[in-house]
Amino acid sequence: MLLDIVTKMAPDDYVGFTFFIGYMAMAAASVFFFFERGSVDAKWKLSLLVSALITGIAAVHYGYMRDYWGATGDSPTFFRYVDWILTVPLMCIEFYLLTKLAGAKKSLLWKLILASTWMLVCGYIGEAFTDGSTGHSVQWGVLSTIGYLYIAYTVWFGEVAQLAENSNSDVIKKGVRALAWFVLVGWAIYPIGYMCMEGGWLSSVMAPENVDVWYNLADAINKIGFGLVVYGIAISESKSNK
């Protein structure tokens, strides 16, 4: 199957190109985070394992998406949402793990998981089960956006931000702020991408056929970048404790 796709891949197929890059980058990042667990203190090992899981799960799905794209030339909405529904809550777990040392409670973890799942399930219904009406797209888009804004608020001004502020660690403060930027800027591609789908209001700004390229680039930056920030915090904190 893969060989069949590889031989058919056009040199100017930049969507396919980014699927291949995304697949390899995620796989490489996963190996890196997994092996680097040995370089950090015990309390940071779980955070790095979660980072490795995020990129590992994404690598597997990028493999599927790459093949799906190669075989059909269609956007792999189904696999993309399967990937996001698994990896985005894991990214939220990273916020909990980082702030756990400053006293984060389990309720924060569940609120973030719930909000991220809500955001993605609503987005999936809006995108995949569309009846062609704008009402459907808007309704699920609004519901999905509420989940996104809740997460953005929590990490910028809410519980996560306050816990980081009270952590007495500059590394954690800076790290949480860096991850908050990923949520604000990096994750914004997802609602924007949603509005760029066929018939969407922003489809004139970003053509629907290009949305996959942006999703692939954003996914790679968000997931690997997210993991690298966590890795940076873990290494700095481990060194300062020696």
């Binding site: 808007v138 888009g141 804004l149 209001w201 922003l202």
Partner: peptide, 13 residues
């Protein structure tokens, strides 16, 4: 930003 998202959704509809 909230305003932007609300208006984007209004235009989407």
């Amino acid at each position: 930003l909230i305003g932007v998202y609300i208006i984007l959704n209004l235009f989407q509809g």
